[in-house]
């Protein structure tokens, strides 16, 4: 049980994908202008990271390892995750229009972004088993969700302030993101 707790806390706070690993920065900056869309994006990332953790584990353990081609993991993971996300998008579109409306529009955007690929690679490097991989993916997604929702709240408030012309838009967002990352340093040493 402590192992699971360690993974959970570690992925959400200590090794937060955005805040301390700097992965998944593109959706983090691109879709954080409004809290609604940030929430949708975060949920989509959580969803994709969870299922891709499971599938990449299976592909690695049962295809790449037996055939002694572990060095192909990067390209194999990209292939598997891209196909999987496409498939899931089609499936959701058919079966649940409501879910598609809230989640589906974000799915093509995050097909193998660095956070999604990163979680797969880290699971492999940490020698997690299937359950641990899935948990790690889920917790990593939750960490991303928390980061992007908090950040969108900050950005919504920044909008109302008189910002010098040179800092308007992305520059001030990057500075805010940097300060937020520094605050996440406080979690270092928790586990």
């Amino acid at each position: 049980m402590p192992v699971f707790l360690t993974i959970l806390i570690g992925q959400i706070f200590v090794n937060n994908f955005v805040m301390s690993k700097f992965m998944g920065i593109c959706p983090f900056l691109g879709v954080s202008k409004k809290m609604d869309s940030a929430l949708g994006m975060g949920m989509a990332v959580t969803f994709v990271m969870t299922i891709s953790s499971a599938f990449t584990y299976l592909v690695y353990q049962y295809i790449l390892v037996p055939l002694h081609v572990q060095y192909l993991y990067t390209i194999a993971f990209i292939l598997v995750i891209a196909a999987l996300v496409q498939f899931v998008e089609m499936f959701i579109r058919k079966t649940s229009p409501e879910l598609y409306a809230s989640l589906g529009v974000y799915l093509p955007l995050i097909t193998t972004n660095c956070a999604v690929l990163g979680v797969a690679v880290l699971n492999m490097q940490n020698h997690y088993n299937l359950v641990e991989s899935v948990l790690s993916g889920f917790a990593g997604g939750l960490g991303f969700l928390m980061g992007i929702v908090l950040f969108s709240g900050i950005r919504e408030r920044i909008e109302f302030n008189p910002i010098p012309k040179a800092f308007q838009g992305f520059p001030i967002a990057l500075i805010a993101a940097g300060l937020m990352a520094i605050s996440f340093l406080g979690f270092q040493g928790l586990i």
Binding site: V59, L72, I75, L79
Partner: peptide
Amino acid sequence: PFLILGGI
């Protein structure tokens, strides 16, 4: 490797 990746 070519076969494996192509196969996938």
